[in-house]
Simulated assay, not measured.
Amino acid sequence: MTVTNQAELEGLQAIGRIVATTLQAMARAMEPGMTTRELDGIGRALLERAGAVPAPEDSYGFPGATCISVNEEIAHGVPGDRVIAAGDLVNIDVSASKDGFFADTGASFAVGAVAPAIERLCRDGRRAMEVGIAQVGADRPLDGIGNAIGRFAAARGYTLIRNLASHGVGRALHEAPEVIATWPTKGDRRRIDRGLVLTVEPFLSRGGVRAAEGRDEWTLFSQPRAPVVQYEHTVVATERGAIIVTLPH
């Protein structure tokens, strides 16, 4: 989607606030002993109360309102009977629509005490997203996002999952440009149009380089197996940089 007027921006910001607030509430509610299905139920209730429709379920028939991925699961985790435990690394991805506008956000959370390396991975995962967002602006190179994230990751000894990309969003959950690399690339001559709506969502890892599909045909796992975090915002490109629409109230 390309934003062309204030009403469209306000529509995106409205659904952006809803998914951001839902994500924060789920993170606050998460505790050891809870199943991922119970956590998903909290997210579903909040979205429904706000008049929003869970996007993965509505768009793709995903078996849950949100994606909840634990430890070795790195994305698209299906809510179910898995019990969240102290020391787990949990990713929550919330996307939804309202009044014809879609927004997408996500974050990884350590449950209780974890190793210092995992704490650092979480902190640096958020920073990697922020580095990517700083490259978003009208008429800037699209590959600047992944190249900047790649420099950040390499300088700190991390790897990046290279087959889970950022994407256009706004009037559907996934729109053109459908693949926006969050890792270094060469030869991409595309530039960012003014008003383009896109996600910035690097998957930072301590060794993983690809995502592989699990037996349920939804959940994705790191190859090789390694800790992975993902942080995601939906943004709009302007001449002054990125407007982040997935911010809570």
Rank of each mutant, 00 (worst) to 15 (best):
77 G>S: 06
105 T>W: 13
90 V>T: 03
102 F>G: 10
63 P>T: 12
103 A>F: 06
60 Y>W: 05
87 G>F: 06
81 D>P: 09
96 A>H: 14
65 A>R: 03
98 K>L: 07
98 K>D: 15
102 F>L: 02
62 F>R: 03
70 V>C: 13
89 L>I: 15
68 I>S: 04
77 G>R: 08
81 D>R: 14
64 G>I: 05
61 G>S: 14
68 I>F: 09
91 N>S: 10
77 G>Y: 11
87 G>N: 08
101 F>Q: 06
95 S>H: 00
115 A>V: 01
74 I>M: 06
73 E>A: 13
96 A>S: 10
88 D>L: 07
97 S>N: 12
109 F>D: 02
115 A>P: 05
95 S>L: 02
67 C>S: 09
93 D>G: 05
95 S>V: 03
99 D>T: 13
74 I>P: 06
63 P>S: 12
62 F>C: 02
112 G>Y: 01
108 S>K: 04
75 A>H: 10
60 Y>H: 11
101 F>M: 13
115 A>C: 12
90 V>P: 12
71 N>I: 08
111 V>F: 01
104 D>R: 00
86 A>G: 09
97 S>Q: 06
79 P>Q: 06
71 N>E: 08
100 G>T: 04
91 N>W: 00
115 A>H: 14
63 P>M: 04
59 S>M: 10
106 G>A: 08
80 G>P: 08
70 V>S: 15
81 D>V: 11
99 D>G: 03
91 N>D: 05
70 V>D: 13
88 D>C: 07
74 I>A: 06
67 C>Q: 03
78 V>T: 09
97 S>F: 01
67 C>W: 02
91 N>Q: 13
61 G>I: 12
105 T>D: 06
108 S>M: 00
79 P>T: 13
93 D>L: 07
81 D>Q: 12
64 G>R: 09
78 V>S: 08
104 D>S: 04
80 G>H: 14
83 V>C: 14
62 F>A: 04
110 A>I: 05
107 A>H: 03
85 A>E: 09
98 K>W: 07
82 R>F: 07
69 S>L: 04
105 T>Q: 11
84 I>R: 12
62 F>S: 09
107 A>K: 03
67 C>H: 05
80 G>S: 13
113 A>F: 00
105 T>N: 06
78 V>H: 10
67 C>E: 11
63 P>A: 07
112 G>I: 00
85 A>Y: 13
108 S>N: 01
104 D>F: 12
78 V>N: 07
71 N>V: 11
75 A>Y: 04
66 T>Q: 08
99 D>H: 10
69 S>Y: 07
105 T>K: 02
112 G>E: 00
95 S>K: 02
91 N>F: 01
84 I>W: 08
63 P>I: 09
61 G>Q: 10
72 E>P: 13
113 A>C: 00
61 G>N: 12
101 F>L: 04
74 I>Q: 07
75 A>V: 03
